[in-house]
Design a binder for these strands. Sequence first.
DNA 1: CGCTTAATTGAACTTTATCAACGCATGTGG
DNA 2: CCACATGCGTTGATAAAGTTCAATTAAGCG
Lengths: 244, 244
Amino acid sequence: MAFQPQPLTEVRQAHCEVCPIKKLAFCGRLDSDTQAALYRVSQQIKLAPHYHIFQEDEPADSAFQLLEGAAKAYKVLPDGRVHLIGFIMPGDLVGLSGRGLWGHGIYSCSVETLVPSVVCRYPAHQLGKLSERFPDLKRSLLERTGTLLNAAQERMVLLGRRSAAERVAHFMVSLVERAESAGGPSGEAWVPARQQDIADHLGLTPETVSRVWADFRREGLIRPCDSRHIVITDRSALLTYSQP
Amino acid sequence: MAFQPQPLTEVRQAHCEVCPIKKLAFCGRLDSDTQAALYRVSQQIKLAPHYHIFQEDEPADSAFQLLEGAAKAYKVLPDGRVHLIGFIMPGDLVGLSGRGLWGHGIYSCSVETLVPSVVCRYPAHQLGKLSERFPDLKRSLLERTGTLLNAAQERMVLLGRRSAAERVAHFMVSLVERAESAGGPSGEAWVPARQQDIADHLGLTPETVSRVWADFRREGLIRPCDSRHIVITDRSALLTYSQP
DNA sequence: CGCTTAATTGAACTTTATCAACGCATGTGG
DNA sequence: CCACATGCGTTGATAAAGTTCAATTAAGCG
């Protein structure tokens, strides 16, 4: 599918104080000892777009936290159908959900950058060792995993019981809320993906996504602008779709 | 929906040695100290069918492990549509995935027994305290949660990208495999639920489930018997449906 | 045995997928 | 700089999958 582009570059940061996602990071609330230990085993790496950070069924030797950019986590069925587990945005942690843990596992999905990105890499065995030494780290990972599980359950309802319009509305709102909580302007978001990816995320076809998108524009729920941006003009109407 | 039936009865067990799910339990591989501490804060409770163990958005004060019987975990949309997150079988642990953890959280879904059941209850704050004292316990919980997250991601693909026949086939195979790994006879399983529940689990209608079921019977993939039992006669054909 | 609930089956209808054509950018090479 | 290829989004026509509605049969349960 996507070719493997330019090599990755390590771009060691001075320290965690300058980390662009201090507030969102799983490591952001840890005491400075733990954070320092974590920093020592980590690598910061710049990645080209469409770079495969890891692939499903590969041995899981590392976890990654996205510092900048965007990525997608996905699974592929043997016949080529794709399902996108989620869009990975700054602050998200991937690579821990594999079967087996701490360096003996297998990645449960593939992750690929969508735009130029920077990740922070943590070798799994180090993460395992550190999490025995620093209980707060283990707790933080447990909380993260729990949050992910929660989100996953919400998505089951979305995919199992919601209509195309509801799915797209929900996607728009959650993308915008995510952008807002990352400090963006109110009611707006940048869409990190093609419509094919969005369709693969929502269990639809790109055509259906496009049509619903057009309907929302016609109904005045979103401002008509290019398909890589969302500007919500009537959030309550969208919420009515996405929450009912 | 379901009425709240007879009161629950505590049925304290002598000790963990006689636990019917020793092998499947999250606590089964812990050292005896940890297990003893866990046992001391636990309660074993007998529940009538259709008893609500807990409900979505309620304060999450306990986690529960199912010892005997069967239950369903589900979410309800405001307009009444239901989605079943999963069937809870002996050895499954529920109540930990709520938002917020260790007694400050909220249950993220409802859980209701389907048949007479026995659960082992762990107060959340005790579980929190113990998991700080016994690192292996926290690790075990983290592993459990990771496994659940994995399963949740598989289900997303199922719900987002698979046809009705594929979903039903997958459901049958996984139910049978679960029954087999719990020591049941090969190729057989007891279905703990009505077709409505199965439909709510697979994102279908009961009519569609019934039709696919009938097709499988006609095609000789399963033995025709009552709809509360599955007897697989051609597993490879079913796998072809459920894996392709 | 009669009552209630659940499963089955058929037929009409909806929603979404599929297929195909077109438009619009972007990028490339002559 | 322009012709042309390529990829993506949009739109329409048509088909398929699954839902909905309704009627019937079968299965628990007092």
